[in-house]
Design a protein around this nucleic acid. Structure first.
Lengths: 227, 227
DNA sequence: CGGCATCCGGGAAGATACTG
DNA sequence: CAGTATCTTCCCGGATGCCG
């Protein structure tokens, strides 16, 4: 977006010039949990084409939101990583997601990426429900592993080895999403073989109750009928 | 954006389908301070064309973010107004603006709309600087009047009659922006006739110190030089 | 395979003129 | 004042291909 400029000193307008292009904010969302390779980004953003991803990454790099870096050997592969300031966009991403979760047209049954699910937990964590709950939960979705630490009314949720946690759940992230947001009982998913749970099952049961979708706002038809 | 869909249950992706189109978030920003007519919106969004504004308003109305309403007589004019859920986008707008204010490429010397300036005060209010400051400040920019109330470490800033406040500043909103964010002394602006101040000058002086731009993040060149 | 350049079709955004 | 109609421009997205 070089020529289509808002010419407005407002921070919101400037933000739109930085990340208002299609896909840009979703790329940032994917990178909030750590560096990724080009093909990882492409795989987790269904529908993006390679040239658009290339262009967005160039723009984000020029804006100092993303840096392209070569990992030290072994690996020695190029990855894209958020700058510290790029990481500060987390608040923006979470505020956006929380607001949209109330949309009357939001359809939670669509496919969801692993990063989206993790970020949704960070966004939707209800501190007041945590009480004195304390413990660690490991999440394993194929190659991707995360550790959630709950304590003192806080949640930290980062990439890490899941097997050190008090309870480890593994399987499809979509199934876990169904348990958290769709109300499907964990026991049922475990019995069906959709999820594997090792360790403190009660902790996992309490953990998934820390998240829930907010009530939906009235849609346009309801507003016309009776405001 | 009907066909260009992200197909993603992530709230952030859904938000982009609702307000990811060009101009949409700026229209919301303009409406956060109250209903506006079509031509008011057009005037405060420099560069938007009528057909795009029409289309955005239709989409926002279909998404239950905006309602089109006829004001009661006298007036009896059509206005666009945020729904209660649309109003909840304020947090999103403020988070966006705060993040972008740290952009190395942000140029605060561009023109700014009245709504942007008001929203920037809401965004950038530094509660820790307020201390026990208490009082009301009236802001008058042509036909538009606002009242800022500071007290208990809180700021409320809404449309209202400015003349009831402890101090009233009137003139060009761009000049006031220069005083708040550009560090131009109020006394100088008043002497030059750019601003008129009536009432408690000291209160206004303390008031404008409640806001400031955050430090800039390093730009892409600096990151390449030494991370 | 990973990353990037090029070409092309469709559609959204922008500018202008015009109407009720 | 509040939009519509029309035309042009340019971005998005898909396909293909080059290069390491």
């Amino acid at each position: 977006m070089k020529k289509r400029v808002y010419d407005d000193a407002c921070g919101t307008a400037h933000a739109l010039e930085l990340i208002g292009d299609r896909w840009a904010l979703l790329i940032i969302r994917e990178l909030l949990l750590g560096p990724k390779r080009f093909s990882d980004l492409r795989a987790s953003l269904p529908g993006i084409s390679a040239n658009v991803l290339t262009q967005r990454l160039e723009e984000l790099e020029a804006s100092a939101i993303v840096v392209r870096r070569r990992l030290p050997p072994p690996g020695a592969v190029w990855v894209y990583e958020l700058t510290p300031w790029g990481m500060e966009a987390e608040e923006l991403v979470k505020a956006t997601g929380r607001w949209a979760a109330r949309s009357p047209s939001h359809d939670p049954s669509l496919p969801i990426s692993v990063s989206s699910l993790i970020m949704s937990m960070r966004s939707m964590f209800a501190a007041e429900r945590a009480g004195d709950l304390s413990g660690t939960v490991g999440l394993r979705f194929g190659e991707e592993e995360f550790v959630a630490t709950v304590g003192g009314g806080q949640l930290t949720l980062v990439r890490g080895a899941a097997n050190t946690a008090d309870v480890v759940v593994s399987g499809s992230h979509e199934q876990l999403a169904a348990a958290i947001y769709g109300g499907v009982p964990l026991a049922k998913l475990e019995k069906a073989g959709a999820l594997k749970i090792e360790g403190d099952r009660a902790l996992l049961g309490r953990y998934i109750k820390l998240f829930s979708l907010p009530p939906k706002a009235p849609d346009a038809k309801a507003l016309r009928a009776g405001p």
